[in-house]
Structures are given as C-alpha cells and as structure tokens.
Computed example of a mutant assay.
Amino acid sequence: MILLSDPRVIEIPVADCGEPLAEIVTVPAITLDPRERDELGAYGRVRAGVLQRLGSASDRLPTGIRLLVIEGHRSPAEQARRFALYEERLRRSGISDPAELRRQASAFVSPVEVAPHCAGAAVDLTLVDADGAELDMGGTVNGHRTGDERWCPFDAPGLSPTARDNRDLLARCLREEGFVNYPTEWWHWSYGDRYWALVTGAPAAVYGPI
C-alpha cells in the first residue's frame, strides 16, 4: 500500500494544465452534501476536468443511484490544520517518532505539500438512493474521526455483502473514468494529482496546488 507520505509521491513532477476550479452543483446528477462546507465554499469545487469525469461516472450508475460529494477542494491552510490535529491525536496515543507520526497521520490526512484536495483533484464521496439516503458502505465517510478506522480501508475485511457490493459499484464507475482510490479511505478518489500519477505511471501530475 502506497501512502501519501511515501517519498516517491513528492518526487512526481507537476505540469499543471491550468484548468480552473468548477462548481460541483452545476452538474444536476451529482448531489453536494453540506457537512464539510467552509466559509468560502471551496468544498464544493473541483478542477473542471475532474468534474467532467465525475459527471460521466454518474452516468454509469444504475437508475436511482447518485453520487453524493462530501468535499472537493481544500485550502492548504485547512489541510495543514487537519494534518497537525491528527498528528497530535497520534502523539497522545504514545507515538513520538516524527517519521512514524508523519507516516501514520498520512494514512488519513495527506501532508499538505502533496495533498490531492489542495490541487482540486480529489473528492470525498459516497452513494445515495433516489430518496437521498446514503447506501450501506460498511462505514461512514471520514470514519477515522470517530474511531472507526477498521472500516475505512477500501478492502476492509469483514464487510457485509451489501457494503462490499456498494463499494465495488462506486469503484467501477470512478475507475472507468480514470480515478484512483486512496486505499486507506474508501471514500477518497482523485484524478490528475501526484498520487494519481505515481499509481497510474503517468510522467507528471496535471494538477498542482491551487
């Protein structure tokens, strides 16, 4: 499993294509959830190419199933704040080695210098039914915040057949549009960032911090 703290990630060059951020709400087939709303509304934006791919992924879903986006773009300041908070949580649990703190923190919060959300390249998302109810994914989005780390990995053992099927459905529609999953978080998918480039073998990231 490659974590975002892996030195190979930061070594990936960035050749930013210059695409602007786009508003997720402009795609009617995708629902935007307000739980991570920030003052400037950044959470509801991703790069234009990412949004286009999300729209195409949504078209691949069965009738009555929709994508529910929890968060898109995130400022570097907010990313750094979240990383520091998670490091402190780990420090209180007894971990003191700086390298180990960084490694374990990056399982759930990216170091700011390589963060896919800061590039507008990542989305945290899940699936909902026609009534807007979230499907059973075997764990909640951002479950690491509530101590439910066990269910956070995409391939977490012990999932019910229903949860496994729903995760696989989400994965199929996104992978067919070029997205990659961060394997410690079933809900986190990205396209065009450094992590994506490393996983797919692309020569460079097409989206850098914005």
Rank of each mutant, 00 (worst) to 15 (best):
L67T: 06
V69D: 00
H73R: 01
G208Y: 08
V25R: 14
M137T: 08
Y182N: 05
G18D: 08
R167E: 04
T140P: 00
D59C: 07
L170T: 10
P161H: 06
E88W: 09
A77F: 03
P157W: 09
I30N: 03
Q79C: 13
R60T: 02
V199K: 12
G143K: 10
L125G: 02
A163N: 11
A57P: 04
I24H: 03
R164V: 06
T140C: 07
V69P: 01
V112R: 07
A204T: 08
D6P: 08
P203F: 04
A84S: 13
G94E: 07
I12C: 10
A80R: 12
S160L: 09
W187D: 06
N181R: 04
Y191E: 00
G44K: 04
P153W: 05
G158L: 11
N142I: 05
P28Y: 08
R8M: 05
A171W: 01
E88M: 11
A42Q: 10
R103Y: 12
R89Y: 12
L174E: 03
I70T: 06
G201M: 09
D131R: 13
V199E: 04
R164H: 11
A119I: 04
A204W: 07
E19N: 01
E177D: 08
A171F: 01
G132Y: 09
H188K: 03
F179P: 02
L40R: 14
P111E: 02
L90C: 09
M1C: 03
E87M: 10
P183N: 03
V25A: 15
V69I: 15
R37M: 14
W196G: 02
A99R: 11
E87T: 10
R172K: 14
E88G: 00
T146W: 11
P28A: 07
R60I: 01
I10T: 11
E134Y: 00
R164K: 14
G44V: 10
A84G: 03
H144G: 02
H117D: 06
W189M: 11
A107E: 13
F179R: 03
A121K: 01
C17M: 08
R81L: 12
W196T: 05
Q52A: 15
L198S: 10
A122P: 01
A15C: 09
G132V: 11
G158N: 09
A133W: 08
V114S: 01
G44C: 09
L51V: 01
L90T: 08
A107Q: 10
E87C: 11
Y207P: 01
Y195N: 04
C17S: 13
R60W: 00
R89K: 15
Y195H: 14
S75L: 11
G41C: 05
A99G: 03
I210G: 12
P20H: 05
L198F: 11
S75D: 13
L170M: 15
Y86W: 14
I24W: 00
E134S: 14
I12M: 15
S75V: 13
Y86C: 00
Y182H: 15
M1V: 14
A15W: 03
R102G: 01
V50A: 00
D193G: 07
L51R: 08
R89C: 04
I65Q: 00
E185A: 05
R102W: 06
V114T: 09
L90Y: 07
V206P: 01
T200M: 13
D136H: 10
S106C: 02
L54S: 06
